[in-house]
Simulated assay, not measured.
Amino acid sequence: MPSTTRRSFVATLAAAGFGGIAGCSALGSEDVPAGSLELVNRDTLPHEIAMEITDVGTEYEEDAREVVGDPIVPQPLTERRTTAILQADTTRTYEAIFTEPVWYTVRFTIDGEVVTEPDGKVSFYPGPRNDSSVAGEYLRAGVLENGEKTLVVAGTSNRGPFEQ
């Protein structure tokens, strides 16, 4: 199935709250655009993956491991959250979720447990940066074949919403 657009994603969030979301794309079928969210289940069992944006900022403070600053954004990004139930061997890619050129802190849980310790959060900047060889980044979270939980900030050559 085609990837879900940002407008459809936000509309689904408003209508469904924490319900499951449709919108599938095959793993590796194309270069995932910057600013996307990719949920993956390579296990033989279904899993529930939840995501919420907990903070946005203009910079990332490496020592404190947090985003800082008050970016001007068109809507409260920290209110974005969703939960999807992925059947076995399924990948869902939601394009253009992280479209603002700001730092995001995102928290993931899988089956109610945090993905990474201590708090399941990761910070990333989806757009292109001068100090990077990639055109942008996207988030990938899910369950591997052995049931292990994974959270990755992945680089991509597809600039997505950050095309200039």
Results as ranks from 00 to 15, higher is better:
M1K: 06
S3A: 12
T4R: 14
T5H: 15
R6M: 12
R7A: 14
S8V: 08
S8W: 04
V10K: 11
T12H: 15
L13S: 14
L13A: 12
L13M: 15
A15I: 01
A16E: 07
G17T: 10
G17A: 13
F18N: 15
G19L: 11
G20P: 12
I21H: 09
G23P: 12
S25M: 09
S29P: 02
E30V: 10
P33Y: 02
A34Q: 02
G35Q: 10
G35A: 12
L37T: 08
L37I: 04
L37P: 05
L37A: 03
E38Q: 13
E38W: 02
L39P: 12
V40F: 14
N41T: 05
R42S: 07
R42M: 14
R42P: 08
T44L: 09
T44W: 04
H47Y: 04
H47K: 04
E48F: 02
I49M: 00
I49Q: 05
M51R: 08
M51D: 11
M51G: 10
T54K: 07
D55N: 15
D55A: 15
E59G: 08
Y60G: 07
E61T: 14
E62L: 07
D63V: 05
R65Q: 06
V67R: 00
I72A: 07
P74Y: 08
Q75C: 06
P76Y: 13
P76V: 14
T78D: 15
E79W: 02
R80W: 09
R81D: 09
T82C: 10
A84E: 15
I85W: 01
L86M: 05
L86Q: 14
A88R: 07
D89H: 12
T90H: 08
T93S: 07
Y94W: 12
Y94I: 11
A96N: 06
A96H: 06
A96T: 03
I97Y: 02
F98A: 01
T99I: 10
E100C: 01
E100Q: 14
V102S: 05
W103L: 00
V106E: 03
R107V: 01
F108G: 10
T109H: 03
I110K: 08
D111Q: 09
G112W: 04
E113K: 14
E113R: 15
E113A: 09
V114G: 13
G120M: 12
F124R: 00
P128H: 03
P128A: 07
R129S: 06
V134N: 07
A135I: 06
Y138C: 09
Y138H: 05
Y138P: 08
L139S: 03
L139M: 00
R140P: 01
G142D: 02
L144T: 11
E145R: 06
G147P: 00
E148P: 00
E148Y: 04
E148N: 07
K149S: 02
K149W: 06
L151H: 04
V152W: 01
A154S: 05
A154R: 05
A154V: 03
G155N: 02
T156K: 04
S157H: 03
P161H: 03
F162M: 03
